[in-house]
Simulated scan of single mutants.
Amino acid sequence: MANHRDELVFHTNPQSRGRIVRWMLEEIGVEYRTEVQSYGSSMKSPEYLAINPMGKVPAIEHRGVVVTEAAAICAYLADAFPDAGLAPATDDPLRGTWYRWLFFAAGPVEAAVSAKALGLLPPPERAGTVGYGSFEQTVDTLEVAARSASPWLLGDRFSAADVYVGSQVDFGLAFGSIPERPAFAAWAGRLRAREAYQRAQALDNALIPAKG
């Protein structure tokens, strides 16, 4: 029986980016305990702020370590549970591609999509002052990743990069925050067909309070 230190605790809310980490956990197939944090209450409690001072989810606790930020959690879990095969070895040239797309989605994609949704995109003459350049440039580069996913970002090998970057595409198509393009739709279709994706969706959907 695993000791308490080895227990993996997953802090989330079913209506958050925690859905990305839930999917990652289901792909790994490891045991974990879910702690649902509520917006405006437990998420801002002293107990949770001691875990994540940002008062946000997702976060995990594992082996005495706290990891926050969905991309970082996906990368951590892939390395912490290598038997799942969701990260190339450190001496594998594909490790560079894996890092590239993970951090591209966590940086330029996240920033550009959020800025556009809030009406805060810089004017063209100031595009060089932000890390993503322009929304159009970022989406075009994301499409390069989607086109290279044949079927996955690392070729025949599914990885944590598909979970995280693919989630950005999946969410973007669902909420209209990225444009509909054939490469995005095709990749998202392959992702949604995965059993772990479907299990994760069912688990999170079951946690959403019914409207009535």
Results as ranks from 00 to 15, higher is better:
residue 63 R to D: 11
residue 124 P to Y: 04
residue 206 A to S: 10
residue 7 E to C: 10
residue 9 V to I: 15
residue 141 T to A: 12
residue 76 Y to F: 14
residue 200 A to K: 07
residue 166 G to R: 11
residue 188 A to Q: 14
residue 64 G to F: 05
residue 101 W to S: 00
residue 188 A to I: 01
residue 206 A to V: 04
residue 135 F to Y: 15
residue 198 Q to L: 09
residue 44 K to C: 00
residue 95 R to Q: 06
residue 165 V to D: 02
residue 189 G to D: 10
residue 44 K to M: 09
residue 169 V to N: 02
residue 91 D to E: 13
residue 125 E to C: 04
residue 169 V to P: 09
residue 197 Y to F: 15
residue 34 T to E: 11
residue 116 K to W: 04
residue 159 S to P: 06
residue 20 I to D: 00
residue 77 L to C: 05
residue 189 G to I: 07
residue 43 M to T: 11
residue 19 R to F: 10
residue 150 S to D: 12
residue 92 D to Q: 06
residue 92 D to A: 05
residue 210 A to P: 05
residue 187 W to M: 11
residue 48 Y to Q: 05
residue 117 A to V: 13
residue 178 I to H: 09
residue 184 F to K: 03
residue 126 R to P: 01
residue 43 M to Q: 14
residue 82 P to S: 08
residue 92 D to L: 08
residue 88 P to R: 01
residue 28 I to W: 10
residue 142 L to G: 07
residue 36 V to D: 01
residue 43 M to F: 05
residue 150 S to G: 13
residue 167 S to M: 13
residue 72 A to I: 12
residue 123 P to R: 09
residue 81 F to H: 04
residue 197 Y to D: 00
residue 17 R to W: 12
residue 149 A to W: 13
residue 3 N to D: 15
residue 207 L to W: 02
residue 174 A to C: 09
residue 125 E to K: 09
residue 128 G to S: 12
residue 198 Q to I: 05
residue 71 A to V: 15
residue 192 R to P: 10
residue 104 F to V: 12
residue 143 E to A: 14
residue 206 A to L: 03
residue 142 L to M: 13
residue 111 A to S: 14
residue 172 G to Y: 05
residue 144 V to N: 11
residue 166 G to K: 10
residue 89 A to C: 07
residue 1 M to G: 15
residue 78 A to M: 03
residue 148 S to R: 12
residue 23 W to N: 02
residue 37 Q to M: 15
residue 174 A to H: 12
residue 77 L to K: 01
residue 181 R to H: 02
residue 208 I to H: 08
residue 97 T to K: 15
residue 125 E to F: 08
residue 100 R to Y: 08
residue 209 P to W: 08
residue 128 G to M: 11
residue 12 T to S: 15
residue 43 M to E: 00
residue 29 G to W: 08
residue 71 A to W: 01
residue 138 T to P: 04
residue 125 E to N: 06
residue 201 Q to E: 13
residue 188 A to D: 13
residue 11 H to F: 15
residue 12 T to K: 12
residue 50 A to I: 02
residue 53 P to A: 06
residue 93 P to T: 05
residue 200 A to Y: 09
residue 74 C to G: 03
residue 155 G to L: 04
residue 180 E to K: 14
residue 39 Y to P: 06
residue 187 W to D: 00
residue 170 D to L: 13
residue 101 W to I: 10
residue 132 Y to L: 06
residue 204 D to W: 06
residue 144 V to A: 10
residue 168 Q to N: 13
residue 43 M to V: 10
residue 120 L to F: 01
residue 74 C to H: 03
residue 21 V to Y: 02
residue 7 E to L: 08
residue 117 A to C: 12
residue 149 A to C: 13
residue 64 G to T: 06
residue 1 M to P: 15
residue 197 Y to M: 11
residue 105 A to V: 09
residue 130 V to G: 12
residue 70 A to E: 07
residue 68 T to I: 15
residue 102 L to A: 07
residue 124 P to Q: 05
residue 155 G to Y: 01
residue 34 T to K: 03
residue 5 R to E: 11
residue 182 P to G: 02
residue 198 Q to S: 07
residue 71 A to L: 05
residue 137 Q to C: 06
residue 182 P to W: 03
residue 60 I to Y: 05
residue 117 A to T: 13
residue 159 S to T: 14
residue 102 L to Y: 07
